[in-house]
Structures are given as structure tokens and as C-alpha cells.
Write a protein that binds this DNA or RNA. Sequence first.
DNA 1: ATATATCGTTAGCTATGCTAACGATCTCCA
DNA 2: TGGAGATCGTTAGCATAGCTAACGATATAT
Lengths: 156, 156
Amino acid sequence: MTKGKDAEALADQLHSAAIHLLRQLRKQDDAGGLSAPRLSALSVVVFGGPLTLGELARAEQVKPPTMTRIVTGLEKDGLVRRKGDTRDRRLTHIEATPKGHKVLAAGRARRVEKLANAVGQMKTRELAELRRGVQLVRDVVASMRGKPARSSEERT
Amino acid sequence: MTKGKDAEALADQLHSAAIHLLRQLRKQDDAGGLSAPRLSALSVVVFGGPLTLGELARAEQVKPPTMTRIVTGLEKDGLVRRKGDTRDRRLTHIEATPKGHKVLAAGRARRVEKLANAVGQMKTRELAELRRGVQLVRDVVASMRGKPARSSEERT
DNA sequence: ATATATCGTTAGCTATGCTAACGATCTCCA
DNA sequence: TGGAGATCGTTAGCATAGCTAACGATATAT
């Protein structure tokens, strides 16, 4: 079946493209003092309202200790705040500061500075195709996340 | 201009999708003892023939010290070999061992185990769209790599 | 009231990325 | 020919991110 071969080649290309894209974007992010994981977490907090640390960890698909450190870093930079919960005092709510909002906006502008240069020169048609491709990648990630991989045998 | 807004939103989604995709894939890679950077470097060596360390670093868009360590790790696992150059003894050529070839193949199979599960269930039409999207991402990365970002003012 | 479960943190490991500085080697030119 | 300067890979040292294991504080259920 050639469909399987296609999937295989596509997997590699997707993998490689993702790696190289992130390496490029990180250069921009670093310039603004925000690493990719921090930026991603901040973005969730800004748009997703206040969250507990555990929720944030799950959203970012990371273990709690890792999120603890990311949040600590963001807090040290004054981008988010920790707030205790009066009802359940085990919980820590994370919320974005005004500075967090500003920095996120600035960071996006900086990233887009480069991407817009490349993407802005694309034809409208290509833009639509790219958007479609991104959506498909999101679907793929979601379905990987949900179900465990079936073995070749089961897949028959 | 709505095109710019589109590009901005698309940049974020692309960024986020790349991060989450790699997080998923890394789980599989780790199972085989190969992290994403090592796998990527090994892949270049296997398919790109013997390379010097510097060439490999440039191919992977990484600084030489970083590549030194990645290669050291791969070498310790018996996946690549360092070979001196008789003419220019400053150079170190990196070549894949038979085991390197085998492990690369196995690693790809493992990744595809999951991706194929998701991708294999896609309609042929969606497969084509995804492939197109990946190609566009590669183009975007390439054009980011080539030219420095022009400022908003210059872009007019 | 006590046992169990949950939440976030700390401690400690490995890996990736960087810059700075160095030793070895090559190249070029006086 | 010989010395200055460039190039290559490595080492050293720093920061970040990911993990597991173990713990203290708090909630919940029996």
C-alpha cells in the first residue's frame, strides 16, 4: 500500500520541518527574552484566563514540576502572578499581569516580523493552503494524544 | 489589511502546532533512546553521506559546540563514527555505522507507528493537503533562513 | 479520627542550546 | 622560508527544559 509509504515520508518531513521552524522562531523569541515553552505557557494564561498550575501543565502537556519552573521564571519576570485559592488551599492559580499581556503582544509582533515577511508574500491561495495544513497537523497531534498507537499487527 | 492579521494568527498556530507535535513525537523517540536533535542529525548523516562536523552543524542550524556533543552522544551509542581527514587534519568526518542505519529505520518506524495511525485514517484528499501544507512550511522556513526580517516600516 | 488522595514544590538527573577561549592545523604572503 | 592570521573542532561554563522520586500541606472519604 502506497498510502503507508506516503505517511512514512510525510512523518519525516513533518518532523524535520517542525524542528527547523522552531529553531528559527526561537532566535526571535530569545531576542525578546522569552523561550518557546515560556511563550507558549504565557499565551495559554493570557487567552485562557486564570488557571491552576496543574491545569496549565496538562494544557501544555508537561509534568507539574516542569510547569512549576516555567511559571517561576515567568513570575520572576513579572509576567504572571500566583494566587492562592481560599477554598482549596492546595491550589495555585496563575494569572497574567498587564506586563504579561504587553510582552506577549510584543513577542508575537517580533515573530510575525519574520513570518509575515515570508507569509505576506504568499499568494492568498497559498495562505489558505497553509492554514489548512496547520489545521491538519493540529488534528494529527490531537489524535496522537488521544489514542495509543495500535501495533502493525492490530492495524492489519 | 486582513492578510497581515491572518499571517499573525497563523504564525501563532504554526508555532503552537510545532511545539505540541514535537512534544508528542519526542515521547516515541525517547522510547528508542533517540532524542529529536540526535535523530535529526543522524538522519542527515545517513542520507547525506559523510560530512564534516562543521557542515553537519550548519545543516542542522546549530553551533559547532552543540554538534560536537550530539555527535559524541551518537558515537557513544555506536551510531556514527568520527574519521580524520588525511589532507586537512583539522577536519573530522562523520559517517553512519551500519547500526546507525538500522536504528534510524527503526526510529522512523516507531514514529510512524503513531503518525500512521492518525495519518492513515485520513482521506487521500487530506493527505495531499497535509503534504502541501508541509511543503509550504518548508518554504517559509527557508525564506526565513535566507533573508533577515525587514522591519514594518521597510515593508510598507 | 484516621486513612487516603490530590496538589504543588523541591531535589537531582540528562540533554540541548549558547558564548568564550584554546590548541592544532592550514594558508597566505613578505 | 617563516611567521601572521584564519579556520576547525573541542573544552569549559552557563541557562533552560524535560523527567522521576519524594515530601509537606491540604482535602476528602470512611
